[in-house]
């Protein structure tokens, strides 16, 4: 074989196969070892037991899943769904008109407006949260400017504001892309046929931008749902999300198996959402 390949030029098909291997294997190997294997480890740990003082004991058990369906943990999952859901909804309500407005701007202004929306996203995540601690805390800026003693920090509302602040640009971008792509003639046609602006929006613009809406919602929901830093810093420990629960299991309770089970639950919720999203996108 070797002598043949030396003497004869490689067949195109074999060359292609070699090229496919050369291009794909380094990256895929890397992702298999450092992405798929870790995920498999999380999956497998969910079936093992915690050692008396932490660590994993490799004995098969399903008790982690029995623990998971406890109302306590389901309520935390529910609370996370609620907080991430409200955040996503608010982001959509604010993000849609903003994206719509940007899409109507002259070309140069479009770029500037988009950069302005995305710019804060490129600053340090923790620092953006810190800015809100400064604003909302008891002796904070809002209270000292208003001369009030409002309790703004350490409640669910503060968490929602923090999440919204962090992920709003992720809603605006896909919406902008979807609205930008619309053919303005469609709306004109609708208007010419006597439809009001609102009807045009409801019957033409909105349905055509649904894929963008779904992408934006997913982009905001996923990082909000799995977050633990924002509830930690803005929630004052009075409200917890599934991310906090996972972190606690790994770092405080040293209960890796149950932490892994909660991580699986988190992934499961996201997979269901992804499926709903792609189903809805196909129908739209």
């Amino acid at each position: 074989m070797t002598s043949q390949t030396k003497t004869r030029p490689a067949s195109p098909a074999r060359g292609r196969r070699f090229a496919a291997f050369a291009f794909l294997s380094p990256g895929l190997t890397y992702l298999i070892v450092l992405l798929l294997v870790p995920l498999a480890l999380v999956l497998s740990a969910a079936f093992f037991r915690r050692g008396r003082f932490g660590g994993i004991i490799y004995e098969f058990t399903t008790e982690n899943f029995t623990r998971l369906i406890d109302p306590l943990y389901l309520s935390v999952l529910g609370n996370s769904l609620k907080i991430a859901g409200i955040t996503t909804l608010l982001a959509l309500l604010i993000g849609y008109p903003t994206a719509y407005f940007i899409a109507q701007l002259p070309r140069n202004w479009k770029t500037i407006a988009l950069v302005a929306i995305v710019l804060p996203f490129w600053t340090n995540f923790i620092i953006r949260i810190y800015a809100w601690i400064m604003l909302l805390s008891g002796p904070g800026i809002v209270n000292s400017v208003l001369g009030t003693q409002l309790e703004l920090l350490y409640k669910d509302g503060a968490i929602v504001v923090g999440l919204l602040y962090s992920y709003l640009p992720l809603m605006v971008l896909p919406l902008y892309a979807a609205i930008e792509r619309l053919d303005p003639q469609l709306r004109e046609a609708s208007a010419n046929l006597g439809a009001s602006a609102f009807t045009t929006f409801r019957k033409v613009t909105l349905p055509l931008t649904i894929p963008g809406v779904l992408t934006g919602c997913l982009f905001v929901f996923v990082p909000s749902f799995g977050n633990f830093v924002i509830p930690d810093l803005l929630g004052g420990g009075k409200s917890i999300m599934v991310g906090n629960l996972i972190r606690t299991q790994f770092l405080q309770a040293r209960d890796e198996p149950f932490g892994a089970t909660l991580t699986l639950a988190l992934i499961a919720v996201l997979i269901v959402l992804l499926m709903v999203q792609s189903w809805a996108a196909r129908r739209a």
């Binding site: 294997v37 498999a40 480890l41 497998s44 079936f47 093992f48 994993i56 490799y58 004995e59």
Partner: peptide, 21 residues
């Protein structure tokens, strides 16, 4: 058990676990 090779933990999953444990 901590030193259990990753390969076993991944490949064997539950079965390997039951056997070891």
């Amino acid at each position: 058990t901590r030193r259990l090779p990753a390969a076993v933990a991944v490949a064997g999953l539950a079965l390997a676990a039951a056997a070891c444990g």
